[in-house]
Write a protein that binds this DNA or RNA. Structure first.
Length: 549
RNA sequence: GUCCCGUUCGUCUAGCCCGGUCUAGGACACAGCCCUUUCAAGGCUGCAGCACGGGUUCGAAUCCCGUACGGGACGCCA
């Protein structure tokens, strides 16, 4: 096919008999019957089982995980997600059920015409995030988890969390806890799991033995290796298009270590089959692992899931994001005062774009806009500045109740919290927060800038005092202003402004001079929110007192 | 080294599959202006990019080939 194109010979389109043209390129042949391009290779029956073998034990029902393999804690909260969907009236995306659509393949080449249209309802969407608890959840992992989660939501599927802790040496429970905590903080709720591979060890061992018995693997000094067959492995990545690897570049890899623990390749494939994973969405660092795993799927007689690899997140120096680049842990961002909504929005746009100019997405909008087609192939650099911008955007538009929930611990840390702030003083507190919103970059900015309202003592910035309060005459004027404000019938934004401007007029000085001096007297700083906002929020009594310094 | 993949403003990206509508659009950052009592926020304007070389074509950011550069994988890590 490709040959004939290159040589410019006439070709007949197999999909449209009679249509002959040298301009038909392989990639275009299947254009008309769209279904064939959308048909994933992984549907039941599409694979080439070398030997049929059900991995499941006879007494197990589909999808069920033996109780002893399940986690103790009831960490999954599928119920809340179901509720979420119901309450948001989310119906299955109509497109979701027409089957999966591939992006254009590797330039000009496309093997999809070999796939015949199959009229079969698509299998349920089940995706998993499978971190290894050898470290905290970093932003790269979080982005992967987010895309998995988004895809599951979008297609009304199930999001599964699986802990890949087969490396006993390097895995730790603390790390697992940290990962769960980070995902919860980010709002990435899983419907199933967490499943622990360390509790399914026998399962993998059994499978490895099976493969040996059937000739797909062999013993090698206590370990079990997979026997890589000759030929080549080709698969269609939902993001990268067709990827082909010659088998002789793949060595006979280990399935079971000599300590009888499974390696990643074995456990991941066994579990993905067992858990009926329909779409494997993971980092692009797994692209070269995929052919090995496909070989395993074949040996186990299982059909393939759709593979979708995500471009990597790089540091500013364009190398893979690591500790060298500073904060990479999700929880480090929480500590920095980043709200989860902002991180999520930012992460969603790293390696994915909606195709429109929209940048700010609420949950529902993101859900609606997300699709595998918008994922780019090129690695992305993590841009702190843009994250900061997203955070500022969210700080200025988050619902008040939610913001207060994030803020309370910060006010406590700063020693500025008092319960009346969410009781008697709640209305006042809300105006304070609203005043600070457009100025806040991180959560900590709120207590920081609230101090002058909440703490009876204020600190004066010497430079500001020097600049605006040095003149004895200005102090005198502030005294006069204090008396003026004291006798105001009401103390509002309008009345204070009128009083200040009127007084400045009478004194024959610029209002600005009076305002600048007042700012320092009231706040101790030369930088603060609008002075009339400050006065009204501070209240008449305190304002008058501070003006009479 | 071998294999796989990628390459549009400094950064995130739209456009690429289906070549003309692209004097390449948006956002962050940066600069200037406006608003203004300071600082923000907001509004407006500006700066800046199709890696390179061939080819195909009347026409290429878009299709093809090559080069360079970058990334990933080559573990009894995941």
């Amino acid at each position: 096919m490709e040959r004939s194109f290159r040589s410019g010979k006439e070709t007949e389109c197999p999909q449209r008999p009679g249509l002959r043209s040298r301009f038909i390129r392989p990639g275009r042949l299947h254009q008309q019957p769209r279904e064939c391009a959308r048909q994933p290779p992984g549907l039941p029956g599409r694979s080439l089982p070398l030997r049929a073998w059900e991995i499941r034990r006879p007494d197990e029902r589909a999808l069920s995980i033996p109780e002893k393999f399940q986690s103790q804690g009831a960490c999954g909260n599928g119920e809340s997600d179901r509720k979420y969907r119901r309450s948001h009236g989310l119906s299955p995306d109509p497109a979701a059920h027409r089957g999966f659509r591939y992006r254009g393949g590797a330039r000009g080449r496309c093997g999809a015409q070999k796939i015949k249209p199959v009229n079969r309802p698509s299998s349920p969407v089940r995706v998993r995030f499978a971190p290894s608890p050898t470290g905290y959840l970093h932003v790269g992992g979080a982005r992967t988890a987010l895309f998995d989660w988004l895809f599951a939501r979008k297609r009304n599927g199930t999001f599964i969390l699986r802990i890949e802790d087969t490396d006993v040496e390097r895995s730790s429970e603390d790390m697992t806890r940290g990962i769960l905590e980070a995902m919860t903080w980010l709002g990435l709720h899983w419907d199933e799991g967490p499943y622990y591979q360390s509790k399914r060890l026998d399962f993998y061992r059994e499978t490895a033995q099976r493969l040996v018995k059937e000739g797909y693997a062999y013993q090698d000094e206590g370990a079990i290796r997979f026997r890589v067959p000759e030929g080549k492995v080709t698969y269609k990545d939902a993001v990268f298009g067709e990827i082909t690897v010659e088998s002789d570049t793949i060595e006979n890899f280990v399935l079971l270590r000599s300590d009888s623990n499974p390696t990643y390749h074995l456990s991941v494939v066994v579990d993905d089959i067992d858990m009926r994973i329909s779409h494997v969405i993971r980092g692009a660092d797994h692209i070269s692992n995929t052919p090995k795993q496909i070989l395993l799927y074949r040996a186990l007689g299982a059909s393939l899931p759709v593979f979708a690899h995500l471009p990597l997140i790089l540091g500013p120096d364009k190398t893979r994001l690591s500790k060298r680049h500073g904060a990479t842990s999700v929880m480090a961002y929480q500590e920095q005062g980043i709200v989860p909504e902002a991180l999520r929005n930012f992460l969603a746009l790293l390696g994915w774009a909606p195709g429109t100019d929209q940048e700010l997405f609420n949950d529902e909008e993101l859900n609606h806009a997300f699709s595998l087609q918008g994922i780019s192939k090129a690695n992305a650099v993590f841009n702190q500045d843009k994250l900061a911008w997203f955070n500022a955007q969210y700080l200025s538009r988050l619902e008040h109740e939610k913001l207060v929930r994030y803020l309370k611990p910060e006010f406590m840390k700063a020693g500025l919290w008092r319960d009346s702030l969410e009781k008697e003083e709640s209305a006042w507190f809300k105006s304070l927060i609203d005043l600070l919103r457009p100025r806040a970059k991180v959560l900590q900015d709120f207590p920081r800038q609230s101090r002058l309202f909440l703490d009876p003592n204020i600190e004066y910035d010497p430079a500001a005092v020097e600049k605006f309060l040095k003149d004895p005459k200005i102090k005198e004027n502030l005294q006069g202003l204090a008396s003026r404000l004291e006798s105001l019938p009401e103390f509002t934004l309008q009345s204070t402004e009128a009083a200040v401007r009127g007084f400045a007029d009478e004194l024959g000085i610029k209002a600005g001079a009076l305002i600048n001096a007042s700012r320092v007297a009231l706040t101790g700083q030369s930088v603060a929110p609008g002075i009339f906002d400050v006065m009204t929020l501070m209240g008449r009594e305190k304002t008058v007192a501070r003006l009479r310094i």
